[in-house]
Amino acid sequence: MKRQRYFGQIALVLAAALFALPFIPLVLASFSFRWHWPDIFPSMWMWEARGTTPFPVGWDYLFSPVSGLGPAFLNTVGIGLATALLATLIALPAARVLARYNFPGKEAVEFFLLVPVIVPQIAVGIGMLMLFIRLGITRSYVGIVLAHLVPTVPYAVRILTSSFQNLDIAYEEQARTLGADRISVLRFIVLPLVMPGLLTALFFGFLISSNVFLLTFLISGGRIETLPTLLFQFIESGAPLDSTTAGLVLIVSIPGLVFLLISDLFARDGRSIGRTPVTSVTIPQGSGGPE
């Protein structure tokens, strides 16, 4: 057993290094001005280049209005928030029903509510583009948010269903017998107990939305940029260790990083919520597939 542990530790350290190290050159690159072949380190940093060129470089460029980062960031956050909120609201009643009731055809409904996760997004996206052209909502925020519901609603249903499964109906009955009316039951019992799942669904919806590329790309028609579509253009046109692409990659990684940190925090501090936080459980179910 001891040797096994030793082996496991080494494998884990190696893997962690393998997945984390590639970010380091990107951090260096984001602050570089000149990083020519075959240098292992940048030969000139952005702060050294300031003033020597008439154009803003590296982060200065990214934060200047020309880069388009500002609007893309705001669009991503706005679309992400709207998508997360809508997806959670839409999924909430369905999750409650799936967790609480048995009915004929339940498995079919569960399957239907999950299947968008495995159906090729290119097929949905192209069909959706035709539909939205008819409805006149391409190139609009409404269109993009609606498009983002397809990958987010299934996950929200999943997360909230397991959350409601933990909420035994006995708690609500118990509260009723203690004198709580329906509103009070909702406020004092249901909401606090479902809150971790609700927050997870919101976070997760935001995360998926902020990572979606293809659907945004198709529906926005290039009129509304988000961080992924902007990154797509940068990669398409940039050089390998280009400073602005590197900087943008780091910015695009922020939502995910925040998500991880928060879910880890919850996992460590389970007591504020009462039971094992849903966050740590749901990451696996989610994020591998699309986005």
Partner: peptide
């Protein structure tokens, strides 16, 4: 019978 106390 069970789940008697509010966990939060």
């Amino acid at each position: 019978q069970q789940h008697v106390l509010f966990p939060h």
